[in-house]
């Protein structure tokens, strides 16, 4: 059924910390690995070793450069490089679901996960058009729409150790930049992270109500700037040079090498 549920019991989703992500693409690889071997059709590659390789991915990492505006206090602000993982945001008002003509796309009432029933999908591609985030990709080998399942086959999988019952991308992230949890629970890790760090929606003007939140990067250190008044640099005394010219053995070595 492609009409959206009025509300879902739980709101499972991800928090992605743009401050912490180092852009290693480990989440991309683990996602592709898990989802090729498990739920639904494998994520195929076309011409993988040829001149023009491409393939189906449910999670991709972009990198953006952000140049802060110059101010009188900061005439030459340094640009920031931000790695930006992007997968399905499991929107509350998911436009990809309502456009589906067959009922293959649906949003689960129990946990809010947006899924595709691949045996009902006719591969019309309309849901990919409706998604502003590029979260859905048509598998070129299988002719059906693929998308992030929030690793629905891991998170409830009692055959896995409890520590592994999170999405593959979250489990693998070496930087701890991805967090999984229930946004309907105000005390969950993801809810608290969102509240504390100002978690934001992507393209709020599209009205999709994304469940996944992104934590904005913190301001970087500004080494070229004088310290504000009152702030003491405790390391500075230890880092001042102790002498300008070498003395003792090193002084002798220096002079000896000069003479050669």
């Amino acid at each position: 059924m492609t009409t959206l549920p009025k509300s879902t019991t739980r709101k499972l989703g991800l928090v992605i910390d743009l401050d912490t992500c180092v852009g290693c693409h480990a989440c991309v690889v683990s996602c592709k690995g898990w989802n090729t071997e498990n739920y639904g059709a494998p994520l195929s590659d076309q011409n993988p070793y040829g001149a023009d390789p491409s393939g189906t991915f449910l999670n991709r990492v972009h990198s953006y450069e952000v140049q802060p505006l110059a101010t009188s206090a900061m005439p030459h602000p340094a640009a920031q490089l931000i790695h930006f993982p992007k997968s399905c945001l499991h929107c509350q008002d998911a436009p990809c679901v309502t456009v589906c003509p067959t009922g293959a796309s649906y949003k689960r009432v129990e946990d809010g996960i947006v899924l595709v029933n691949e045996s009902d999908c006719i591969g019309c591609g309309l849901c990919a058009w409706a998604c502003p985030y590029g979260a859905r990709e048509m598998d070129q080998a299988e002719g059906v729409m693929k998308k992030c399942t929030l690793c629905v086959d891991r998170i409830y999988n009692e055959n896995l150790p409890e520590i592994d019952r999170v999405p593959a991308c979250v489990r693998t992230c070496p930087a701890g930049a991805r967090h999984f949890g229930d946004f309907a629970d105000p005390d969950s890790t993801v809810s608290r992270l969102t509240a504390e760090r100002g978690g934001m929606d992507l393209m709020p003007e599209q009205g999709t109500g994304p469940v996944n939140k992104y934590l904005p990067p913190r301001p970087k250190d500004r080494l070229d700037q004088p310290k504000p008044d009152g702030e003491i640099d405790i390391l500075a005394p230890f880092l001042t040079p102790v002498m300008e010219e070498p003395a003792g053995f090193l002084g002798w070595l220096d002079r000896a090498l000069e003479r050669i």
Binding site: D52, G55, H62, S63, E65, G125, G134
Partner: peptide
């Protein structure tokens, strides 16, 4: 608005996720 990074400064796409193309770009 797409990245939510506009509050920090001017956003520029620095590096795409992959060197090749994909379904999204073709379509």
């Amino acid at each position: 608005t797409a990245t939510g990074l506009g509050d920090i400064g001017t956003v520029r796409a620095f590096e795409p996720p992959h060197t090749g193309t994909n379904y999204l770009l073709r379509e």
